[in-house]
Amino acid sequence: MDRVRLSIRMSIIALYAAFFCSAGLQGQAFELKVKPLSEKSSFGPNRLHFTHFFLGTAWIPPVSRAGDSQTGFSLGFRGGLRYKIRLSRSLALVAEAGIAGQKFRMQPGFPLLPGDTLSFRRQSLSVTGFEGAFGLRIRLGQRGNYLGTYIDAGISATTPVSSVLSTTMPSPESGGSGIRSDMKIKRRVDCIRPFLYAPYVRLGFNKLAVQVSWRPSAMTDQPANYDMPALQIGIEFSPVRY
């Protein structure tokens, strides 16, 4: 008797299962809503809104500085998110937020010789912080599947979070021994301004852009014998596809 009951129960379950299975086969294969044509015009570099990731390098040209040192090796990086909103077919506003860092090495202007009065062999300043920027984009090419051809002009502001001055100088113990040894001292620089502003111009072509920025003010809020040069040139890569 129990077997019969179990059999009836299983049959009912099987019937329910078969019903739901067949109901599943009567599925929606697909359904599409046709977009109005006005929505389609937002395409490629002409798109109304667009946010993308960017990553760039910065380089400081080796210009002579006042005093006795000149620019040596320098390297910087920038990365973050950029948002674009279209104003017209040729104009757009861009805003970006990210992080930026630069390392700038100062070297003596001539070889270190015995009896030289220079106090250091090398000195480098590293500044890292958050960066925000706001600008206007003039789009020269409105078509394509990437960012197109454009010129950006705007102003960026950096808030330094870390600023370290590293000085390498001859070790006092090395004098007269014939063996050269260096001593490295690192210290935080406290007199960096809380905001560093820099107007910039960027020329972009699809995924690549060249950016030039210039900082009008000194980096420190008091006279100091170290400061990064005002001019920076960078190459930027945006791995995007509209």
């Binding site: 086969l25 009567q26 599925g27 929606q28 294969a29 359904e31 599409l32 809503k33 046709v34």
Partner: peptide, 9 residues
């Protein structure tokens, strides 16, 4: 709007 429905069974 347009679509397709599978009618089997």
């Amino acid at each position: 709007k347009y679509g397709v429905k599978e009618m089997n069974p």
